[in-house]
Design a protein around this nucleic acid. Structure first.
Lengths: 259, 259
DNA sequence: AAGTGGTCTAGACCACCAT
DNA sequence: TGGTGGTCTAGACCACTTA
């Protein structure tokens, strides 16, 4: 044959055919790859099969495989390395660490924070937590409070809520002893990869306890960030409410250029 | 010939050839297209030549043209419409209007604000403005203050600074009479297309005047957004400091999924 | 019916990495 | 040296819009 391929469209709708032309082939490939990631068949940090091999497995051309991988790379799910292969993104990579941390100091530099655990408790989801995490009210949850320091200054107080069922056996000791970021822990120990998050920002006033932790007076303004983090297929993983002292730092948001 | 094309690499470095392989062809195409946009040869809202025509003009294959356009579409610079053509993005399109407006109400819905002009004055750039707009201190600027209402409630107070030279003949009347958004005005009347912006968010306390405009008490917390908006080649266009009453609204930020 | 973008294929060569 | 991704080409057919 010479090159055309319209037949592929029909190859997937052989019977009846009255149905619409559905999604293009590369969407199907994306879905298949996502499933392998979801199921843990391909794990974070590992290389996935080469493009020619995938083309064989999925019975499509290399060009179609490339188009599918292109999208997953754009979404930070995969990373390509010329000459080495294509890898499943890891939260231990620098570019990914910063992807979910948006606090910068006065001159715009991002520094990575030192984390200090203030609390680790088990409890039951209230109405708001349940709604945002897709749980039933009263479902068992783990709540964590972390203080983040930048250059020794306390800047962020995180209140984290996760579903206990999704992280069986998680203890304070495990949480404290983790080598990297929290998302790296979710990923390495529980196979839960945070790939997306939605944040809502508001200005609030510090209450006594929070103010004390962040070294500001009660009533001083703080930036509050409510984040819901998601894994594949938009499944919610974590609810995190951060309060930020923006006296010497700011939240950086870039619009456009791949945003 | 059958298909290969490595020669192209050399075709662009015919003499000496000791130089590195420079950028790929599609980068060069992106640059050429960007220049046509920058110079105003292709204006916003207009269609650009078809892909086969561009391939001829630039002496590359359609595939290479497509790859270049792919990137510009991802960056919201161009918009494709199957069957109609490829168009230069306009700030009058809905998807673009919301691209630079991130305030949502309690249930997460974006509504477009009603704008009320509070001030329009000419002045000279102070040190901070000059630095952020790439001007010399004391350069002539225009300063605008706008109040944005959502469902009749005053929610955002914008203080805008632009270089007077870039917007010759701009008057209060023109500013008020514009049909669409401010960025649409920049684009339509002055050929200046805002395509990217960087925002820094902080929590501050309302001063008397701002509080009055937003219907809050002096000392209440407000979300302050400092935005620098850029056009092609990262040239700064506008400095905008917004103060937001986040009592019933929030700033929405999405991380991941093309961010 | 003609023209445009959208999808898919097949194959070439280049650049980079590991061995 | 062999394998991997990166670039580029050429050409087919599909889907959509406009006239």
């Amino acid at each position: 044959m010479t090159g055309g391929s319209g037949r592929r469209y029909n190859a997937r709708t052989p019977h009846g055919g009255s149905a619409a032309v559905q999604s293009p082939l590369y969407r199907h490939v994306i879905s298949q790859i996502t499933q392998k990631l979801e199921s843990g068949e391909w794990r974070s940090g590992e290389t996935i099969p080469s493009e020619p091999r995938l083309a064989q497995q999925f019975h499509v051309s290399v060009g179609t495989i490339r188009k599918a991988i292109d999208e997953l790379v754009a979404g930070q799910i995969l990373v390509r390395h010329q000459g080495r292969g294509t890898f499943v993104s890891t939260h231990s990579e620098d570019h990914y660490r910063y992807h979910f941390f948006h606090i910068v100091d006065a001159d715009g530099t991002k520094r990575f924070p030192a984390v200090e655990l203030h609390a680790f408790r088990r409890g039951r989801a209230d109405g708001s937590e349940a709604a945002k995490l897709g749980l039933k009210r009263g479902a068992p949850v783990i709540r964590v409070v972390n203080l983040l320091r930048l250059d020794d200054d306390p800047v962020v107080l995180d209140r984290i809520t996760i579903a206990a069922q999704q992280f069986p056996g998680l203890t304070r000791a495990i949480f404290v002893a983790r080598p990297g970021t929290i998302y790296h822990l979710y990923q390495e120990r529980y196979g839960v990869s945070v790939i997306r998050a939605v944040e809502r920002l508001r200005a609030v006033t510090a209450d006594g306890a929070t103010g004390k932790a962040l070294g500001v007076r009660a009533g001083d303004p703080l930036l509050e960030i409510e984040r819901v983090a998601y894994t594949y297929r938009d499944r919610p993983v974590e609810l995190r409410v951060s309060q930020v002292n923006t006296g010497h730092h700011a939240y950086l948001s870039e619009l456009g250029k791949g945003a």
